[in-house]
Design a protein around this nucleic acid. Structure first.
Lengths: 200, 200
DNA sequence: CTTGAGTTATGAACGACGTTCAAGAATCAT
DNA sequence: ATGATTCTTGAACGTCGTTCATAACTCAAG
């Protein structure tokens, strides 16, 4: 394969990711169709499968972008805070804001499921883990003396609990905090958890 | 419509729910197919649409059963505890156990999404809300003096945070507590939250 | 029992989907 | 300029949810 065709493929892959990202953002994950995405990317239907394994593979590439963007927001939020608890609150706020403003992409990133037996590629799993790492530092300052492993576990749990509140609120027609008080509820959650974790 | 045909329809509806429940339990929500479910229920393909609006409608009926079963488990767990905090922990434990033992049905109940613009029927939304009500009593005992509305909100948030930890652990190939320590992490979460909520 | 109008059940047919692959177009070394 | 090789294309396939013309059935009236 010549160098020229390789860069052409890369360009097409980028165009496909662009188109897929747009389609998911507008219509959600189920709105992503092979025929439509290839048309707006300006290629043949079959070309999709030269450049990407699957529609699932394309979703993964979009999700990778989303996670990267979310990671940047968290980075920014984490830097501005003074106290560890303030940092955790700022991170939660940023997370909620991201989920609210990029609902469909956020949803795709956290709810895309591969067919049974298939696993996410390692490089992509690592991106999710890196996301949670943003919590490790402030949480470690709040809870000194924890082993690295327990700290990592607690960071995952903290992340997951905030994520759960956002998910049930945005998703759920049933239950879940109404959208107007979502930020408040998440703040209360982080505050109570910070307090409780420190004194337990 | 004679009475006879009405009960025949009801019987068929039950058989379809049975078949759908089995199929979802074995293969997950995406494994539910109109052709297969009607075949094991012993009826024609089109009969599905006489008895139920949609495949989505069938999923809702299965989810209703699942929520009812989960509600029973929570009832049981809530009754055995002495202290409010003990009750919350027992409820969380029961929830985790249910999710672990009925993964696919649990997943369907909390991740089924109707097409854009459609809402869950009111009677079904009420079932989800009733589920969360199990937390209200012990939480109210733990946090006296809260208004009914804030108490309901806190109960939803507590529910959602536990749910989030379970979801990310079971779902996520990326991140989320590994399954062996899930119960421990959820216990730690409930403990910290109880402590933190009380003293805030 | 017979009739026929009204009701219910059936499954072939439809359109949309993801994916494949034979055939054509483009590229490149000679 | 030519043949070999690589890449691209979109028609075709199988599967899906859903519909609807038609067949089968039900039942009151004669």
């Amino acid at each position: 394969m010549s160098n020229n065709t390789k860069t052409k493929r890369d360009e097409l892959r980028q165009r496909l990711i662009d188109a897929a990202e747009d389609e998911i953002a507008r219509l959600g994950m189920v709105g992503l169709k092979a025929r439509s995405v290839t048309q707006t990317a300006g290629c043949a239907l079959g070309a999709l499968y030269n450049v990407v394994t699957d529609l699932d593979g394309l979703i993964i590439l979009v999700n990778s972008r989303t996670i990267k963007r979310l990671s940047d927001k968290l980075d920014e939020a984490g830097r501005t805070a003074k106290t560890p608890e303030g940092a955790l609150k700022a991170l939660a706020t940023a997370y909620v804001q991201f989920a609210l403003s990029e609902r469909n992409l956020w949803f795709a990133a956290f709810n895309h499921r591969l067919p049974d037996g298939q696993d996410l590629p390692d490089w992509h799993q690592a991106e999710y883990l890196a996301l949670i790492t943003h919590l490790t530092h402030p949480l470690g300052a709040l809870l000194p003396g924890l082993s690295t492993e327990t700290l990592a576990l607690r960071a995952q749990t903290l992340f997951a609990s905030v994520h759960g509140v956002v998910q049930l609120s945005l998703n759920g027609q049933f239950a879940g905090a109404p959208r107007e008080v979502l930020q408040d509820e998440v703040q209360a959650l982080v505050e109570a958890l910070s307090l409780g974790l420190r004194s337990s």
